[in-house]
Design a binder for these strands. Structure first.
Lengths: 319, 319
DNA sequence: CGCTGCCCTGACAACGATGTCAGCCGCTGA
DNA sequence: TCAGCGGCTGACATCGTTGTCAGGGCAGCG
């Protein structure tokens, strides 16, 4: 900047004005400065700018795993929105480890981002309290944050399960098995509660052994499948409540009963039969988070993003 | 920092020393400072640090689309490596638009990252020359950069096609159709050249109409399929050279001939039959890029990352 | 002609951290 | 006793940018 000023024969401040497109510079002067900028290949140092102005034009995004298509899609939506305001996105993954969530989030905070979007894993995010006190807007996605007042954008988990049950019921199923995640997980609790409520609303019983909640690993998936399908009176339909469980189940058996899966999968339509899913809307989640952050409020807000049932065959015809 | 210094009764510089873990601070003093840091919730401002030290601990990553599983996996690998050095990752997508690639990359450069990893789209990346002159290490991935001397990490495209042809040949196929991307794309040229070379090496002819190169949209995929499968003497096997073409082809027909697809797909093993692919190794690409950037050299280097043929059924049994 | 007000420009301090260098203190050894 | 040294600490300048404020020049008006 100093070089530009010297080359154009003006003061630093004038270069600053030109760079920022302020109106109060004489056209001839601006022209000289711009030529110098081009000739010298000058580019503003955003770090210094951030130092002077307080916050950098950066959105920090902490997800569970950026390689997960769901979070990758959220990242894509956030990035598209950020770009409109000349902001950039820092992305980090917690890999479902609380300590890593904290380290990554605090590492981001040290860069003084404009806002933080976080998919909470840890039991508490109170480590963010100093940052929030310092004016950092925080928005939780996928699950609510704990230990602090932050906005949250969540999928309509219960509504999705209601749709799944309604769909299966409409296709004649009365005994529906449910394979979900560990109930320690917030979304798992919401989904299984939604499932039970929907079953009750249809006057359907839910025997204990037909709801299986646990970590979606191959072993647990296999025993769970045996339990719900193996007895004298097996279920005629199945709901898998997350995509890892869905994948395990599909790998284990070709002769599954009617199936609705929570979470869409790439190529789900190419399977035989096509996989009927309750799809979350990651773009909408990312956009909603950006909306909340753009319009700060005194009170923490919660946005529920609709999910959508996509019939593709696996739940519609008898096997 | 000023508050911490006052609270601990020391000078700014001493706080700085403690924060940076320098040895020359008396244990009692360090203890006082650390307590003050905890009590005040002080966190170093990385922007200011960057200003003083020249570069921030940031890796900039520009991909074609972060929602693409291939690039998401690269991002994940880069992030894992970066985290080890307390670096963070800024990710942006060019969405295959040259202007956007440039804007995103230069926006990142303004943050003075430690290094830039870029999946080139534009005809030239010479807009980066000033940054490189300023000491920014740049590494291209997926495709080489043009207009500047930069390291590159590329998949072994030709080797992958050789493996595909070898595999199909071993399973008795002599007439192999090839559906690839627009030859304006670097990887497309490498792959089709690899295909032709491998066919020649096996003494197989490649009639012109059996190689179809174009943008992987539904219309082009349909006419291409008709061309290679429709004549009096249709091919008995097919290679799809990128995952979008693969998806289009799979959607169009159930009764495909033997098929090898370049690029792995989520759930490819669950299709009927399982999809035989030549899988790229995005983690290895991300890691190789980080390796190159960590060990700068005078000369630009090129790393070829091996690909791997994964037989899953679509190429192994007659249909 | 002098005053007012506007347009344009520049000097300077400040953002938060760290590199440089100087200085204080107590101890060692002659 | 005192020079010298090593361990520890602090004052100050600096990184690149922008907010604040002051001031020069000129047109318009009385």
């Amino acid at each position: 900047m100093k070089d530009v000023a010297r080359s154009a024969g003006v003061a630093l401040k004038t270069v600053s004005r030109v760079v920022n497109g302020e109106e109060t510079v004489a056209p001839a002067t601006a022209e000289r400065v711009e030529r110098a900028i081009r000739e010298l290949g000058y580019r503003r140092n955003e770090g210094a700018r951030q130092l002077r102005q307080g916050r950098s034009q950066v959105i920090a995004l902490v997800v569970r795993d950026i390689a997960d298509p769901f979070f990758a899609a959220i990242g894509s939506a956030v990035e598209t929105r950020a770009e409109k305001d000349a902001q950039v996105v820092m992305i980090g993954s917690s890999h479902d480890e609380p300590a890593r969530e904290r380290d990554v989030a605090l590492g981001f905070c040290a860069r003084r981002p404009n806002a933080l979007i976080l998919a909470p894993i840890a039991a508490s995010q109170d480590y963010l309290l100093p940052e929030i006190a310092d004016g950092l807007p925080v928005c939780a996605i996928d699950r609510p944050a704990h230990g602090l007042a932050a906005d949250a954008v969540l999928s309509d988990n219960a509504g999705g399960m209601a749709a799944a049950v309604r769909h299966l019921h409409a296709h004649g199923h009365r005994r529906i098995g449910y394979l979900g995640d560990d109930p320690a997980v917030f979304t798992s609790r919401e989904r299984v509660a939604g499932f039970r409520a929907a079953m009750a609303a249809h006057g359907l019983a839910v025997p204990g052994h037909e709801v299986r909640l646990g970590a979606p690993n191959p072993g647990w998936a296999a025993t769970s499948l045996d339990t719900v399908l193996g007895g004298p009176d097996p279920v005629t339909a199945l709901i898998t409540a997350n995509n890892r469980m869905t994948a395990e189940v599909l790998k284990l058996r070709r002769d599954l009963p009617a199936l609705v899966a929570f979470d869409d999968l790439e190529l789900a339509e190419l399977l035989t039969p096509g996989l009927t899913v309750v799809a979350q809307d990651p773009e909408a989640i990312g956009n909603a988070a950006m909306d909340l952050l753009a319009a700060p409020a005194g009170q923490p807000r919660e946005v529920r993003v609709p999910v959508r049932l996509i019939p593709r065959g696996s739940a519609e015809r008898p096997r």
